[in-house]
Write a protein that binds this DNA or RNA. Sequence first.
DNA 1: GATCACGCTAGTTGCGTGTATAGCCTGCTG
DNA 2: CAGCAGGCTATACACGCAACTAGCGTGATC
Lengths: 239, 239
Amino acid sequence: MYSLLVMRIAASSERSMADLTARARIRDAAIACFAEAGFDTPFRTIAARADVSPGLITHHFGSKAALRAECDAEVFRRYHALKSDTLDDPSANLLERLARPGDAALVTVYMLRALHAGGTAARDFFESLVEHVRQVTAESVAAGLVRPSRDEDARARYLTAHSMGAMLVQYLLDPGRSPDDFVASVLTQERGQALPILELYTEGLFTNRRMLDEYLMYVGDPPVGAVVPADAGATAPTA
Amino acid sequence: MYSLLVMRIAASSERSMADLTARARIRDAAIACFAEAGFDTPFRTIAARADVSPGLITHHFGSKAALRAECDAEVFRRYHALKSDTLDDPSANLLERLARPGDAALVTVYMLRALHAGGTAARDFFESLVEHVRQVTAESVAAGLVRPSRDEDARARYLTAHSMGAMLVQYLLDPGRSPDDFVASVLTQERGQALPILELYTEGLFTNRRMLDEYLMYVGDPPVGAVVPADAGATAPTA
DNA sequence: GATCACGCTAGTTGCGTGTATAGCCTGCTG
DNA sequence: CAGCAGGCTATACACGCAACTAGCGTGATC
């Protein structure tokens, strides 16, 4: 009976038995605190949220860096779970999935904060997102919705950096607090910007093909790492 | 003779005479430190860089917040100087100007850091950039290079948030340290992503006009703040 | 049912920070 | 040359933090 419960939990969320302990409570509390208040949240705050004493955190995790690492790993795990959920269900899309309140919102904001903090974790999360965008665009191309690119890899990186960057900027400019509030504001803002996005994605920005054609004349087509004469894309508005 | 020198300095960089004092040295050192190491750089580090004692900073500025505010104001001033330089010279563009090593690089990275830190300063810098992008796109539209948008304001916000966000992401992911190094890497990365940018700006992303047309059918044209039925732009790759 | 071990807590330590204060020292002024 | 004001320094304080240590309690084991 007990083992049956454990098995069901393990099956549904892949959590190990150890997660039923206070150690897991601390980890989850830390994830929530980190997402809401940043990674410099004091031990005391985390401890209070997990209903344990501050010392216990040290006792279990040794140092703050170790706690952080474990939280990163857990969020990473949850993100991949969300991702495969999304990929399995073709009607879903990642933005909506990630902007859903609750667990998903927590994951999103945590990853944003990790990106904000920089370092190895930021790179890992980012690479993971790039990979995901590449998969989704590939599917959209196959479905005939999106034009193929001459360099799918670079495009995935570009789209990811810009999308995540814009989300990050919004997060930083918005005084919004709770993860749920934030993902809600992301959705509304996304809708406020729907028109320029659709315009850009449908009609492009330039009135003629000159710059693209000139670029293609200089360098060979597909995966280009080469340098282009000074300011190829530079006349594009600002940066 | 002395006054002549002062006048030339004042004319060339608009700095007041008071800036020749140690107070200005502290401010400049703080700007450099903030840009390179973040706003939580200790007083002592700033003091060492300015070759003064830590106490002198308090003596001149009162508090750290006041020092920060004065640095923000100074950077803001320098940015606007760069901006009007760029606007006066039609052959120049802001990205190249901001990515030039030296003073401009410092301004760029400082503003990025301010954005990174959030708060009022971040909003002010951002609004300033939006305004600038709006001017540049308006000029490009007038010159027939860029298609007009049905909502120029929203487009300027969109482009600014995404461009600055991407720069910020790159800054966070890159272990790069000095402002000069960073702006150099921005330029090279910009060139590495030139192809997807040109593709997107020239050809768009979608293969057909369906989503845009559907959107336009639902809401009136120009400055739209309205909400669109659930997932209008949602099928766009990721976010 | 006594013992042992482990989860857990309270209190303490040391460090780094921003800020306050008292004094030095240089360079004007009368 | 005396006096003195103000830029400037060095030292000291108070606070918040992570990390450590010793001890309490509870539940499993033989």
